[in-house]
Computed example of a mutant assay.
Amino acid sequence: MWPSAGAKLAGRAVPVTVAGGDNLGIHETIPTLQPGDVLVVNGQAATHRALIGELIAGRAMAQGCVGFVLDASVRDAVDLEQMRFPVFARGTTPAGPYRNGPFVGGVAAAVGTVVVHPGDLVLGDDDGVAIVPRVRAAEILVKAEAKHAAETKQRAEIGF
């Protein structure tokens, strides 16, 4: 899975909730993805089965998807890194998924302790993933720019 050093991710959330170890909902959602989307999956924190691998990632990339955030495991980690397709997940496993359902898409999904709504902003880098609620994006952008300016000033004062 990538990220290793340098991975970055920014896009619109497309949340889906699946049964632990089951990726039917991911298969059903991939064809609906638009350029700039990030598939965000509540996989019930299950790590016994990988929900995605390089083939699903390749299909998503072909749709314009810019990455995945999975509360679950993945496989084909080296391939994902070579593809430079950002995937943030709980871990890796060689075990493949079930494809039985059920799943729910098009509505909010919890990933860890964060509720992700369709269209929320998903930002990821070496430090992890942040979700910015769509309804607060403009407000948070102003605050983030002010924080960045203050830190830039501090760096200059420190001498780096």
Rank of each mutant, 00 (worst) to 15 (best):
M1W: 01
M1G: 15
P3I: 11
P3C: 09
A7V: 03
K8E: 12
K8V: 10
A10F: 14
G11A: 09
R12T: 12
V14D: 04
P15W: 04
T17I: 06
A19S: 08
A19F: 04
G20I: 00
L24V: 11
G25F: 06
I26D: 03
T29D: 01
I30R: 02
T32C: 01
D37M: 08
V38P: 03
V38S: 06
L39P: 01
G43K: 00
G43V: 04
G43I: 01
Q44W: 02
A46P: 05
H48R: 14
R49E: 08
R49L: 10
A50I: 06
A50G: 12
L51F: 13
I52H: 04
I52F: 08
I56S: 13
A57H: 07
A57K: 05
A62E: 15
A62V: 14
Q63C: 15
G67R: 03
V69E: 00
V69F: 00
L70D: 03
L70W: 02
A72Q: 05
R75Y: 08
D76P: 09
A77F: 08
V78W: 11
E81G: 11
Q82I: 04
R84P: 02
F85H: 07
P86S: 10
R90H: 03
G91A: 09
G91D: 07
P94N: 14
A95K: 14
N100P: 00
G101T: 09
G106T: 14
A109S: 15
A110T: 07
V114C: 02
V114D: 02
V115Q: 08
V115T: 10
H117T: 04
H117N: 11
H117M: 08
P118D: 11
P118E: 12
G119N: 05
D120R: 03
L121F: 15
L121V: 08
V122Q: 00
G124N: 06
D126R: 08
D127M: 09
I131Q: 07
A138L: 14
K143P: 00
E145M: 15
A146C: 05
H148I: 15
E151V: 13
T152H: 13
T152Q: 14
Q154G: 02
Q154A: 15
